[in-house]
Amino acid sequence: MTASDTPAGAGGARPAAPSALRPRPAGPPGRPPERTTPARPEGVPPVVDCGVYVDGVRQEPAEHAQALRQATEQGGFVWLGLYAPREEELADVAAQYGLHPLAVEDAVYAHQRPKLERYDDGLFMVLTTATYVEHDRLTATSEVVDTGEVMVFLGDHYVITVRHGEHGSLADLRQSLEQQRDLLCLGPAAVLYAVADRVVDDFVDVAAAVEEDVDELEASVFSPERTDDIGRLYQLKRELLSLRKAVSPLLVPLQKLAERQVDAVPEATRSYFRDVEDHAIRVRDQIAGLDELLTSILQASLARTSQADNEDMRKISAWAGIIAVPTAIAGIYGMNFEYMPELGWRFGYPLVLLVILGAIVLLYRGFKRNGWL
């Protein structure tokens, strides 16, 4: 049985890593196949960096094949960074580090919800990353939030980060951590904390940028000019939903790391994870507030559109009523009966014109006074 905070494998034995991962099913006929992760660009190696850290200090460079043995002998840990590894590449790493095949499968195919799972004596955590896509003007098809994924394998003497997506590089994070020896002395859990903290900080930046788009839409909807913002509002709500799906599920894993006794996560790191959890809660509340504000703006935009349509209909009806008066009079006098009044009168034609003009003026003033024109 495999579940969050539940050891996997019968009797605690670690399953051997398969030589090839199980292919994902294509799905029932007529449905599109399940999404796969974007392919890594040709010529880019899967191993981004590999370092052995002992007492918070990085040791001499070592091949990742020998790094785990070196870290175990010296009482440190190895941090192996991978970028969009293929099946056979991650299967080799899994065989070296004894990673669970289910976690390896998730790391290859990605598109997982944020989660924290325990397999034997190791942890596997999935985090969804997000970045703000710059654009000159929000349109009905603008991409606002781009998401990726970072998977973290955590053991007593190793931490393996697997990144999917064009953004979310951890190179600068590694450099920053190497300047914080006290934090690295806490072991692999310090890297997990730093990755989670970076991901949540990115959420904060994205939420702040999206808030500016929301403010722009709000100003457009309530501007004196007549605008059509329905498409942009729906698009921004969809983009905000993708950000919400990245943030909300992350709270449960962070809560477990902050409040429960989890293997491979020392007691000293709980306060760090509580800080990350607090930031994530604030971002979640901010996103929820933006979503509610967008809903209100959307309702206001629909109401203004309906009101504008009503005003147009009133203007059309008013002009139709004004035009109906001369049309009716002209229709009556256009019947050409022999004994119609005023047909032989010298002032009959000017009088009819004055009656028509007077009726038009009276109707116009009445409609104008009542706000129809």
Rank of each mutant, 00 (worst) to 15 (best):
L102A: 08
G76T: 05
A65E: 12
V104C: 06
Y109L: 07
A103T: 08
Q74R: 11
A84T: 07
P85K: 07
A71Y: 06
W79Y: 08
E63C: 04
T72V: 13
Y109E: 11
A95W: 09
D92E: 15
E88F: 04
A103S: 13
A67Q: 03
V93M: 07
P85L: 12
L99Y: 09
Y83G: 09
A91T: 14
T72Y: 12
E105Q: 08
Y97M: 10
Q112M: 11
L90E: 04
L82N: 04
E89Y: 08
F77Y: 11
Y109R: 05
G98A: 12
E88Y: 05
A94N: 09
V93K: 01
E87T: 04
Q96I: 13
Q96A: 12
E88Q: 14
Y97G: 03
G75S: 04
L80P: 03
G81T: 08
D92V: 11
L82F: 03
E87S: 08
V93W: 05
T72P: 02
A103E: 11
L80W: 01
D92I: 07
A71H: 01
Y83C: 13
T72G: 03
H111S: 14
Y83R: 11
W79E: 04
F77K: 04
G75Y: 10
E87V: 05
V78R: 06
D92M: 09
Q96K: 14
E89N: 08
A91Q: 14
E89T: 13
P101M: 07
A95M: 10
G81M: 12
A84N: 05
A103Y: 12
L90P: 00
P85C: 12
V108P: 01
L102D: 01
Y109V: 13
D106W: 10
A94S: 13
G98L: 10
H111E: 15
Q74L: 13
Q96E: 14
Q74P: 00
A107F: 06
A67S: 03
L99V: 00
W79A: 11
G81A: 14
Q70D: 13
E88K: 02
A91I: 09
A67T: 03
Q112G: 07
H111I: 15
L90R: 00
F77A: 08
L99P: 00
H111A: 15
W79G: 05
